[in-house]
């Protein structure tokens, strides 16, 4: 006999959630699965990797991709690359920021401060698009959250440049990338062996750089991740404790009535 029981409904809900999930990924090859340190429930970012990743971003990506929602001070905040205060000041001071108007109504340039936003390579989206052959290099602040595969997808695209399959014709300025949606990308492979010289002496292989910069981008998109995991863990433990207490209280109270709860 079919009954309205809990098992059935939980099954139904679970299957709904499960089959809705994959729907959101568009047609493309599944990205390479990487065992990121920040993936698990108590996951944290790899500090050294974040710092190296910032170096890759600064020396490679930043010439085209903006990161307008980040400030230099973020680089020193807990849960991020955690550069020291002096390092953050030095990083900020390495850029010229346009400020103003001053009391004469003139704009002026000054050296950057930690409170400044990351300086964008182009003044606006139109300039950025025009300078890059009609393809806007997306802002990288939340890029990892804005792609269905997240960090795995990011890493895969960086590693996915290949010779196009025989018979596939590509226009000038278009490249083949097997993980990109549609397999065509307007960005040339940004990484090459040794393109960056890591200040901590790590060997700058393709794989290393792709992992580091992806880690950095994952942090940029979710700077709250470590705090979120930490608070979440405490909240769940607390809720479990209270649930047990309330369950026992409920059993006690309902023991006065000859009915099942």
């Amino acid at each position: 006999m079919i009954r309205f029981n809990s098992k059935r409904l939980i099954l139904v809900i679970l299957s709904t959630l499960i089959f809705i999930n994959p729907l959101f990924s568009a047609e493309s090859i599944d990205p390479i699965k990487v065992n990121w340190s920040f993936k698990e429930l108590t996951g944290k970012f790899d500090r050294a990797s974040l710092q190296r990743g910032f170096q890759v971003y600064k020396e490679v990506c930043a010439s085209c991709h903006s990161m307008q929602y980040l400030s230099y001070r973020n680089l020193g905040e807990p849960g991020g690359p955690e550069f020291t205060e002096e390092e953050v000041k030095a990083i900020a001071a390495s850029v010229e920021i346009e400020d103003g108007p001053d009391s004469q109504g003139e704009m002026f340039t000054r050296t950057g401060k930690p409170s400044d936003k990351f300086k964008s390579p182009y003044p606006n989206v139109e300039a950025s698009t025009a300078a890059n052959g009609g393809a806007y290099p997306p802002d990288m602040s939340v890029l990892v959250k804005a792609r269905p595969g997240g960090a795995d997808y990011m890493y895969s695209v960086l590693m996915g440049y290949e010779e196009p399959p025989a018979g596939m014709k590509l226009d000038d300025g278009v490249y083949y990338n097997k993980y990109m949606i549609g397999q065509k990308i307007k960005m040339a492979s940004p990484l090459a062996e040794g393109i960056v010289e890591y200040s901590d002496g790590t060997e700058a292989t393709m794989d290393q750089m792709a992992k580091d910069v992806t880690t950095f981008l994952a942090w940029a998109a979710e700077p709250e991740l470590e705090e979120r995991h930490r608070v979440g863990f405490k909240v769940i433990i607390y809720l479990l404790l209270l649930t047990i207490l309330v369950y026992l209280s409920m059993k006690k109270i309902w023991s006065r009535v000859d009915s099942e709860i």
Binding site: G232, L239, V246, Y247
Partner: peptide
């Protein structure tokens, strides 16, 4: 008390998503 118990179970699932 029964509503509170069920609500707590619900909140655990809720927290799983949020965190």
């Amino acid at each position: 008390i029964k509503d509170a118990f069920a609500l707590l179970l619900f909140m655990i699932i809720f927290s799983g998503f949020v965190f």
